[in-house]
Each structure stands twice: as structure tokens, then as C-alpha cells.
Design a binder for these strands. Structure first.
Lengths: 122, 122
DNA sequence: GCATCTGTACTATTGATATAATACAATAAT
DNA sequence: ATTATTGTATTATATCAATAGTACAGATGC
């Protein structure tokens, strides 16, 4: 699973979002031990410092916590994860509808376009 | 109409996208004369060089063209604008569905969530 | 005990972005 | 004709992101 980083946004943010998604989608389970900073950095083909920054940021959100010498772990707060999932989904929806609106598509237009897209992908 | 720039991505890109949207949504009509680089920079509260870079990039896409001393104009190629609108819409849809999928929502889930969101906003 | 692994901290360097301050040539406006 | 406006180009500076390299303290595994 490649990390698919692009150069348009700070890499540490993309790392954050990627790990956040893995937590929220269940790829990482609550309480799971994360690979070490160094291993994650190798896996993402990124400098350890950059990965360190991403993980520190995730710690500020409460999604992971670190134990000084034994490693980093996913939070056990299941409701935090659930709420974050719902919040992110809402943010994506509103941002998406806003973008489409900026292109001149009404909400009804947008809904129709999505349905067409999904039909064509079966 | 504030330009609503954030610090998470290069400003010149955000300027590009904003102007591109104004062209595609019809706020700027084909053949319209754009304000000067300097005026646009003032309006966006941005350095003239940054605005210049954004406009140069838009020129590479063919959305605007410049006449050395009389100013910059929106392309007259209506079909180019139309195609770009459709392309951007598709890109937004696919990217959005991808993001929702990464959060663990199926296409059906996503469609349902959007409909709920729209219901709640009437 | 000793080597290894952990997170963390620090310095230095490079490249990109944004800004500031000019400058110039060609046209438009007066 | 003169002035103002246009896009464009240049140089310099400051900041941030990313990288490289190194170091240290506290556990863990043997």
C-alpha cells in the first residue's frame, strides 16, 4: 500500500491524514501498537523527522499516545474515534458540496451527477 | 467577496483555483477583461508577484491570455470552459467518494449521508 | 550486564513560497 | 507629446518544509 504523497501540500499533513484514516476506518484498532517512527518513515519513504512531526500532531488530537520507551499506541477511546469519523465525513460532504456549488452546480445537480457516476461504475 | 486564503497550501495555487472557478461558473464571461495584476493583487491582499504567478499558470491551461500592454482576458473558447467544468466536477466527485471510502463509507452510505445533509439544510 | 529499540531533541542545509522593491518596454489615455 | 497603465522580469530577503545526521535517556530482550 503506497502512501501516495503529492507535493502540493506539506507532507507531514498528508501523513497525519493517512494515519488518521487508518485509525478511523479500522485498519488500526484501538490499543494497537504503531510501528516505530523510524519504521513508519521507511515505509512512507520519508524522513524520520517528518514522520515524527505527523505523529506528534496526531497526539495533540488524542488519536494516539506514546509511551516514552515502549512505543506509540492507538487511543482506546472508541467514542472519540467514532465522533471523529462522523465529523470528518460531514466536513468532506460540506466541502464537496461547496466546491460543486462554486462550479455552478446546485445541490440537486450534484446529487444527480453522483448517481450517474455510480451507475457508470457498476 | 473575500478571497479566503489559508496557509495549508501554496497561495498561488489557491489564487489559480479561485479565478478558474470564477471563469467556469460564469462570474467572468468569455472575452472579459481581467483587472490588472496589481489590482487583483490588492483585492486578494497578496503580493503582485504571487498573483502574477497564478495568472501565468492559468495561461498555460489556456483559460486566459494576455496582450502585452492592454491587459489580460478570459479565453473565448467556450467549449474549453465547458469541458473543464465537467472535468473538474468529475474529479471532485471521484476524490470525494474516495475520501469517504477511506473513512469506511460505501458509495451507498455516502449517498445516504448526503441526502440526510441536504434534508437538514432546507 | 549488554546490545537493541523506543521516543525525543537538536543543529545544519537545501529548496520552495511569499514578500518587497524596482525596473523596463509597449500600449492606452489624456 | 506626455502621462499613466499594462504585463513582465529581476534581485533580495524571510520563513517554512523537508531532509540529513547525530545524540540521549529509558525501557526491553537476550
Amino acid at each position: 500500500m503506497p502512501w501516495n504523497l503529492d507535493n502540493d501540500r506539506p507532507i507531514y499533513m498528508q501523513l497525519m491524514e493517512r494515519i488518521q484514516q487508518d485509525i478511523i476506518s479500522g485498519a488500526y484498532q484501538p490499543g494497537d501498537k504503531l510501528p516505530s517512527v523510524r519504521d513508519l518513515a521507511v515505509e512512507a519513504a520519508v524522513n524520520p523527522n517528518t514522520m515524527q512531526k505527523a505523529l506528534s500532531e496526531l497526539e495533540r488530537c488524542g488519536l494516539v499516545y506514546s509511551q516514552r520507551t515502549s512505543g506509540r499506541f492507538i487511543t482506546d477511546d472508541v467514542s472519540l474515534i467514532r465522533e471523529m469519523r462522523a465529523r470528518l465525513a460531514q466536513e468532506h460532504i460540506l466541502s464537496f458540496l461547496g466546491q460543486m456549488h462554486d462550479l455552478g452546480f446546485s445541490d440537486a445537480d450534484t446529487l444527480e451527477l453522483i448517481q450517474e457516476t455510480l451507475k457508470g461504475e457498476i
